[in-house]
């Protein structure tokens, strides 16, 4: 467990140095994330230790609807991007340097390289949905995009996965963008946040 994932360089808010309930952007790219994809991915997840944890939610991976996520014990999240692709997010666990997995986990199940392929940014505070409307065509207001839902879309014309979930008892947007676009996304978000500087 670590709480030191967010470096000063990679934590920005929309109110300068004032720490209040305004928008804040965090970089969780050093936190752990993994995933599997394939026709047998849901069955493989059932066979893993996640099985018991999902039972506490009375959910099985096949019942996890695409573009939803559920919270697991240990501040972890299981996100379903389709019926064949699942990401496990561990925002409080620092990633370990480890070899990139090769080969399949099981027949019909392949590991994802999302630890390396995707940057992980977290947008917290209000009015994050209104701010994101500057960058993204999907309605992210709470009525249309409640906690526990996921949108795969574009943000500033870059592909992004947006997950609405609780982090440290606060509803936030996790934004996953291609690693090569991390700086672009960071700057685009900061630019969009600037408009809300005057919000009191």
């Amino acid at each position: 467990m670590t709480t030191g994932l967010v470096s000063p360089k990679r934590c920005a808010d929309s109110h300068g140095d004032r720490h209040n309930d305004g928008l804040k952007l965090h970089d969780l790219s050093l936190a752990t994330r993994s995933g599997v994809r394939g026709v047998k991915a849901s069955e493989w997840l059932i066979a893993q230790s996640l099985h018991q944890e999902l039972k506490t939610h009375e959910l099985q991976p096949p019942e996890l609807q695409p573009n939803t996520l559920v919270e697991l014990p240990g501040s972890r999240l299981l996100m379903a991007l389709s019926t064949r692709e699942f990401w496990l997010l561990e925002p409080e666990t620092e990633a370990q340097a480890s070899p990139i997995p090769s080969g399949h986990c099981a027949p019909g199940v392949w590991p994802l390289y999302n630890q390396n392929s995707h940057a992980w940014l977290v947008l917290s505070g209000e009015p994050r949905a209104e701010m994101m409307a500057k960058l993204c065509g999907v309605d992210l207001r709470i009525e249309a995009f409640p906690v526990g839902t996921v949108a795969q879309t574009q943000m500033a014309l870059a592909s992004v996965v947006i997950a609405h979930h609780l982090w440290r008892d606060e509803a936030v947007f996790s934004l996953f963008v291609d690693q090569s676009l991390a700086d672009f996304a960071w700057e685009a978000l900061q630019d969009a946040m600037e408009e809300f500087n005057s919000v009191q």
Binding site: P66, N67, G137, V138, A151, Q152, T153, Q154, L157
Partner: peptide, 17 residues
Amino acid sequence: MKIMHCPLNGPRNISEF
């Protein structure tokens, strides 16, 4: 913007396709 309905993701801007 023209909208297309993705069977997995719902309505999206045509630029996403």
